[in-house]
Design a protein around this nucleic acid. Structure first.
Lengths: 166, 166
DNA sequence: ATGCAATAGTAACAATGATTACTATATCTG
DNA sequence: CAGATATAGTAATCATTGTTACTATTGCAT
């Protein structure tokens, strides 16, 4: 376990990195806390969405979880095998399958929800209400900007790299 | 593309989620911008670390990138195959291999660095210097708390879930 | 009605990363 | 020095995800 110091970064880059690190730490802590229960963060998020939106379709769930339809389908396979969720046909459209939490799924949801709540409360415990609002405001600002950037299509061209060796 | 509204969350949870979303958006935007160059974010981060810390060992690099040693090894395999990095034996310890960027690797690094800088600058363009400092302060606070939490070992016990069906 | 484009879900495959087990080397202990 | 222990890196395996191609169904345009 050698101790390595990352090199200094620009002010902006270090902020961007801090966001990445905070997000990763959140995932790490949550994973540690629910690991013994034997499921993953993704599975938990799927369960949460389905409990909160009973009858959501698979495509809608994929959109909410921001994964591909195929990934969502496989995730639902597994959660259905666990007995936490079930697929039911839609009355009107025979293509769609609607997802519902089972009793067991709802029970697990009720059990984990306070854990998630406690975790975020603990994580934010050093911040005043005022500071939380400030943080939310700043993050919303960044998120909006990033969303615009994600839609723009200014990509780097490979040819530029090949040519000049500045 | 059905429009789905996620259900409301507690104030804390929505903040935690915002951090996740900002982090994911950063990754998405960066991926889009470098995708045409044909490499991944992970590869870029590895290149960056190696350029900034020439002669870093594989284990150290794994630690910096926060991936497992085996994953780092395969990543280095690929980057070496690309001709961006090279392994060299350590003078004193025949177990360790030290990683250096090749000329090509350094050239690519010089090309991509401004892209990364421009991206974070653009992403933060809506924030004043004052606000950036505030954001950094708040994130450092959260990160410290999360780091403490990551070390604590208060995990949920599976047996608890099985027993009561409240 | 008919035919065509769009959509919901699935299957097969490739890429990525973690985990475990292994080899080689180094270091510590007596 | 001898032997135990730890560390650096690799190989094999497994799980997860994205991508592409496919089927079934729907709904729109003529």
């Amino acid at each position: 376990m050698t101790k390595i110091c990352p090199p200094p970064l620009s002010e902006g880059r270090s902020l961007a990195l801090m966001i990445q690190e905070a997000a990763r730490l959140q995932r790490t802590v949550f994973d540690r806390r629910v690991h013994k229960i034997g499921f993953t963060r993704t599975q938990w998020q799927a369960l949460r969405q389905v409990v909160d939106l009973p009858g959501v379709s698979q495509s809608e769930l994929a959109e909410l979880l921001e994964v591909e339809k195929a990934s969502a389908g496989r995730l639902i396979d597994k959660l259905e095998a666990f007995g936490w969720l079930e697929r039911r046909p839609d009355d009107a459209d025979r293509r769609v399958k609607r997802i519902y939490a089972t009793d067991l799924g709802r029970r697990i949801h009720r059990k984990i929800t306070p854990v998630a709540e406690a975790m975020v409360e603990e994580e934010l415990s050093g911040l005043s209400q005022r500071e939380r609002e400030m943080l939310a405001k700043l993050l919303v600002n960044i998120k909006h900007r990033l969303q615009e950037m994600a839609l723009a299509n200014d990509v780097i061209d490979l040819k530029e790299l090949k040519k000049d060796n500045a």
